[in-house]
Amino acid sequence: MISLAELAAIREKMKDKVAVREGSAQTRVVVGMATCGIAAGARPVLSAFVEGVNKEGLAEKVAVTQTGCIGICQYEPVVEVFEDGKEKVTYVKLTPEKAERIIKEHLVGGNVVTEYTIGANG
């Protein structure tokens, strides 16, 4: 079974990287995690973003964070993407599969997945 020794090893590996990452994210992916979001399936959507961002090697550039109720409960799970110098993109009714596509096409490729945005679903 995994033990605190492995955690100590992670610390050794990470401790020099910490300073680089803090505050350096150019993109923020914000997942609504209030009652409405949680009931609609926000938890696996958040996991998909955390996993995907790290697997694609975007961890230095993209921060995945959580917030409360965004105010459009009927569209949950809702995720907002904030990029430096660009307009906010609001994705609605997400699933882990849709999250994977957003990671590949938007976060990696730079193209907004228009069909998942609130504009296309309102």
Partner: peptide, 26 residues
């Protein structure tokens, strides 16, 4: 307890979260 081991390294680091998942699953 984890914080004592981690020092300045955040609990939110991907590798740390992976460790926590495995620790609990174990």
């Amino acid at each position: 307890e984890l914080r004592q081991v981690l020092g300045d390294v955040s609990l939110a680091e991907y590798e740390v979260l992976g460790w926590i998942r495995e620790y609990l699953a174990g």
